[in-house]
C-alpha cells in the first residue's frame, strides 16, 4: 500500500510540474506579454521598459525556472493589476470557491444517487424515464444560460433570491444548483449502471434468500458496492467543477477564485492567471490522488496491478 501511495504521489507531482510548464509556455510564448500588459495606447519605449522591468527579455527557461523556484516557496509574484502578492489574492478568494464546490458536489450527490438507485430498482419505469430525462437535459443545457434563466425566474420574477454578490447564504443557492446540475448527470448514470450490475450479483440473491428486508438489501448490500466507482467519479467531477466555477461565479458575481480568474484574464494579469491555472489543476490532482488511495484501500486488486 505504501509503495502504491508513493508511486501515485510521484506521478501527481510530475503531472503538476508538467501542467505548470505547459501553462507557463502557453501564456508567455503564445503572445508578447509586455505589449499585452502595456495596453493598446503604449509606445514601443513603454513596452520595452515593461519588458526589462518584469524580466520578459530573459531566456524562456530562465524565466520559467525563476517562476517555479519562487512558486515552490508559495510566492507567485505580484499581480500586475491589483498590485498585491498573487498568493494573498488567491488565498482571500479561494474560500468562496471551495464553499461553492463543496455545496455543488453535495447537491449533485444528494440528487443523483437516490435518483440513480430508484432508476435501477425499477428499470424502464416512470421514475427511470424521469431520471434519464433530467440527466439528458443537464448535459445539453449550457450552464451559463441555465444560470441566467434562474436569475430571471427567482430574482426578477419572484424576487426570492439575490441575483448577484457573495454576502450571505442566499447568494449561494442558485450557483450551487447550476454547478451541481452540471456534475449530476454523469454521477446519476454511473450509480444507475452500477446498481443494475450489482443487483444481479449472487450475493444479492443470497441476501434475499436469507430473508433480509428489501431496504436492507438495497442499502447495505447493493449500494455499498455500487457506490465505489461513484466515489472516484465524484472526485474527478469536483476537480472539473472548481475549474468550471469561473463561468458560474462570473454570472452570479460571486467573488471567488473563478471570478478572479475571469477578471485577471480580461486584464492580462498573467502571474495571477498562471497561478490560478496551477491552483485549479492542483485541486484536481489532489482529489484524484485521494480517490486513487481510497479505491486502493477498498479494493486490494488495484494496489497490485
Amino acid at each position: 500500500m505504501l509503495t502504491f501511495a508513493l508511486k501515485r504521489l510521484g506521478l501527481a507531482v510530475l503531472v503538476a510540474l508538467t501542467v505548470s510548464a505547459v501553462s507557463f509556455s502557453l501564456l508567455y510564448l503564445s503572445g508578447d506579454p509586455a505589449s499585452a500588459m502595456a495596453g493598446e495606447t503604449a509606445t514601443s519605449a513603454d513596452i520595452e521598459s515593461i519588458r526589462t522591468l518584469y524580466g520578459f527579455d530573459r531566456p524562456f527557461l530562465v524565466q520559467y525556472a525563476d517562476w517555479l523556484f519562487n512558486a515552490l516557496q508559495g510566492d507567485f509574484g505580484q499581480s500586475y493589476y491589483f498590485k498585491l502578492p498573487v498568493s494573498q489574492l488567491i488565498a482571500d478568494r479561494l474560500s468562496i470557491t471551495m464553499l461553492l464546490g463543496v455545496c455543488g458536489i453535495s447537491f449533485a450527490l444528494v440528487t443523483a444517487i437516490p435518483l440513480g438507485v430508484a432508476a435501477a430498482v425499477r428499470p424502464n419505469s416512470f421514475i427511470d424515464r424521469t431520471a434519464l430525462f433530467i440527466s439528458v437535459m443537464g448535459q445539453a443545457m449550457p450552464s451559463f444560460w441555465f444560470g441566467l434563466v434562474l436569475i430571471v425566474i427567482f430574482s426578477i420574477q419572484l424576487n426570492w433570491l439575490p441575483p448577484s454578490g457573495s454576502g450571505g447564504w442566499k447568494n449561494f443557492i442558485m450557483p450551487t444548483v447550476v454547478l451541481g446540475y452540471y456534475a449530476m448527470p454523469a454521477i446519476m448514470r454511473l450509480t444507475r449502471a452500477g446498481m443494475l450490475e450489482v443487483l444481479n450479483a449472487d450475493y444479492i440473491r443470497t441476501a434475499r434468500a436469507k430473508g433480509a428486508g428489501e431496504w436492507r438489501v438495497m442499502f447495505k448490500h447493493a449500494l455499498r458496492n455500487a457506490v465505489v466507482p461513484v466515489v472516484s467519479l465524484a472526485a474527478v467531477q469536483m476537480g472539473f467543477m472548481l475549474g468550471g466555477s469561473i463561468v458560474v461565479e462570473s454570472i452570479f458575481a460571486l467573488h471567488g477564485a473563478g471570478y478572479l480568474a475571469w477578471e485577471s484574464i480580461g486584464r492580462n494579469d498573467l502571474p495571477t492567471v498562471q497561478a490560478l491555472i496551477l491552483v485549479f489543476a492542483g485541486f484536481y490532482i489532489v482529489f484524484t490522488f485521494l480517490s486513487d488511495l481510497a479505491n486502493a484501500w477498498l479494493d486490494p486488486r488495484i494496489r497490485v496491478g
Binding site: L14, V15, S23, L26, L27, A36, G244, V273, I277, A281
Partner: peptide, 23 residues
C-alpha cells in the same frame, strides 16, 4: 497515459479563456 493525466488536470475553461485572450 501521462499526457492524458496532464490534460485532464488542466482546467479547460480557464486555459481556453487565457489562451484566446493572449492570441
Amino acid at each position: 497515459t501521462f499526457l492524458i493525466n496532464v490534460r485532464l488536470a488542466m482546467p479547460v475553461v480557464l486555459v481556453a479563456l487565457a489562451v484566446v485572450a493572449v492570441l
